[in-house]
Amino acid sequence: MKKLLALSIFLLMLLFLAACGGEDTLSNDDNANDEDTKENSGEDNGGWTPSESIEMVAPAGAGGGWDTTARMSAQALTEESMIDQDMGVVNKEGAGGAIGWAYMAEQEGSNHDLFVSSSPILLVPLNGQSEYGHEDFTPIANVIADYGAFAVAEDAKWDNLNELFEDMKEDPQSVTIVGTSAPGSMDHIQFVRFAKAAGVDITKIKYVSAPDAGGVTQVLNGSADVFSTGVAEVAEQVRADKLKVLAVTSEERLDGEVLSTFPTAKEQGIDETFVNWRGFFGPKDMDPAAVEYYENKFKELSDSEAFADVRSNYGWNEMYMGSEEYKQFLDEEKENLKSILEELGLLE
C-alpha cells in the first residue's frame, strides 16, 4: 500500500510540475517576444543587438575542430568585448554532425543560436545520413580555411603528384590511400577530386579509413601508401623527415617555414583545389537584421589580432565570406561534390 502511495504521489507531483512547466515556458517565450518586439521597434535607430546570452553549438564532441573553433571564437568575441552578451558553447555530438544539425533545425527563427560547421554539412546529407543540409540554415559568415595534403613516406618512390597518378592510372589497385574518415567524407573526397582531375579511374581507388591517428601510423609503417589529410596533421612529420608531401590542395603555396615547401597541385599541372572551409550558421529564418549584426561581428573577429594568434597556433588560414557570398559558395560546392559522389556510387 505504502509503495503505491509513493508511486502515486510521485506521479501527481510530476503532472503538477509539468503543467506549471508548460505555463512557465510559455510566459518566458512571451517575455522574449516582448523584448524582441521592443528591439525591432528600435531597429530603425541602431540595428539589432542580442538581448540574451548567445548559444554557440558545436555539432561535435569536445576537442575537435568544430569545438575548438566555437570555443576560441566565443572566447575572443566576449573577451575582446565585441559582443556584450555571454556566449556559451554547447556540444551536440553525434552522427558526424547530424545530431547537432537536427537540434539546430528545432531552433528555427531564433536569433540567439549559432553553430559551427564545415564541409560535412554538405557531404553528410549527400551520404544520406542527415535530414538537414546547409539549405536548412542561414549561412552567416565563413572565417577559416584549412587545406588538405597528400603525404607519403619519406622513402616512397613518388616525388610528386604526377608520378603517383601515373602509377595509379596504370594500376589503381597497387596504391592504398588512407584517411581518418569514412569513404564519401572529406579525406576521401579531396583525394578523389584530384585523382579525377588527373584522369585516374576514381571508381577503382583503394581507400582505407583508419581512426585514432591510424592514417599517419599506417603510412609510416608502410601498410598504406598515401595519407590524405589536413596540412597541419603532417607538417611536423615532414619537418622531422618522416613524411613528404606530394601536394597541398590550396590555390597557392601556403605561408610558413615548412608549409611553403609543399607544392600545390596546380603548379604540377593538375587544375583542382580543395578548401576545407569552416564558418558560422544560424537557424532557418533568422532575422535579417540579426544576420547582419553577426556578419559584422565575425568580420571584426576575423580581422582581430586575438583571432590571428589563434589561427597561427592552429595553422588555420583566414577566409572571410559574408552571408550572401557564403551561401552561393556552398550551393556551388554542393553541386560539385554531388557529381563526384554520384560517380563513386556513394550518393544516397
Binding site: 553525434g94 552522427a95 558526424g96 547530424a98 545530431i99 537536427a102 551520404n127 545520413q129 542527415s130 574518415s181 569514412a182 569513404p183 564519401g184 567524407s185 582505407v208 579509413s209 583508419a210 581512426p211 556513394l346
Partner: peptide, 20 residues
C-alpha cells in the same frame, strides 16, 4: 553504426542516434 570502411549505416533502424 556507420561502418568506417564504406560509410554505410548498419543496423541503425533509420535512427540518427545509432549512427555512431
Amino acid at each position: 553504426g556507420i561502418d568506417p570502411q564504406t560509410g554505410t549505416g548498419r543496423f541503425t533502424f533509420g535512427s540518427m542516434n545509432l549512427l555512431d
